[in-house]
Design a protein around this nucleic acid. Structure first.
Length: 165
DNA sequence: CCAGGGATCCCCT
DNA sequence: GGGGATCCCTGGC
């Protein structure tokens, strides 16, 4: 069992969001985004890394949240082995890093995370303070024009497990 | 059928 | 700070 506390995410919302993969409508790849909330969307990026998302809105409206960083909790030794580094700050502080650390690949795309034992989310009752949440622009979406300015990246200011400040 | 590009990471300078 | 790795997806021919 490998687990971590989510510390950084980004939202990708609707066909009007030019950074969202659904901005060009339904395709074989984006069909999952139009499905049930709680479904995983895992895709390969730059031919080498995977990105983990969860579909968030009602069926028919394409939207998802990209998980960008975790604070490692359980299974750190397995993460160290998968990542090839013992630096705990380097295990899960980035969307490609955390999928590698947790062994998440496209085999876990289109999975119902509300029913799966392989990949799921729990509430650990961590007391998030509203003022600790930073809202800023998303990373790596410069091509999206005005959409790149939306403050749809969120992270915990107090957490050391963040990809970039 | 093929070319172009990508929600990244790592290593080198 | 910059470039390469590497392959899937999409759109255009």
């Amino acid at each position: 069992m490998r687990s971590g506390r989510i510390t950084e995410v980004e939202s990708y919302v609707g066909e009007e969001d030019l950074a969202c993969h659904a901005s060009r409508g339904r395709t074989p790849r984006t069909e999952v985004l139009y499905g049930e909330p709680g479904t995983t969307y895992v895709y390969l990026i730059y031919g080498m890394y995977h990105c983990l998302n969860f579909v968030t809105e009602v069926s028919g409206f394409p939207a998802a949240v990209l998980i960008r960083s975790l604070e490692p909790l359980e299974g750190q030794s397995a993460m160290v082995e998968a990542r090839g580094t013992e630096n705990s700050k380097q295990l899960t502080t980035g969307p490609g890093k955390l999928t590698q650390a947790l062994g998440i690949t496209r085999a876990l795309n289109y999975v119902d995370a509300t029913q799966s034992s392989a990949l799921f989310i729990l509430d650990d009752n961590y007391a998030v303070i509203d003022s600790d949440i930073v809202a800023t622009t998303r990373i790596g979406v410069e091509y999206a024009g005005a959409c790149a300015l939306y403050p749809w990246r969120y992270y915990l200011q107090s957490s050391p497990y963040i990809s970039k400040r």
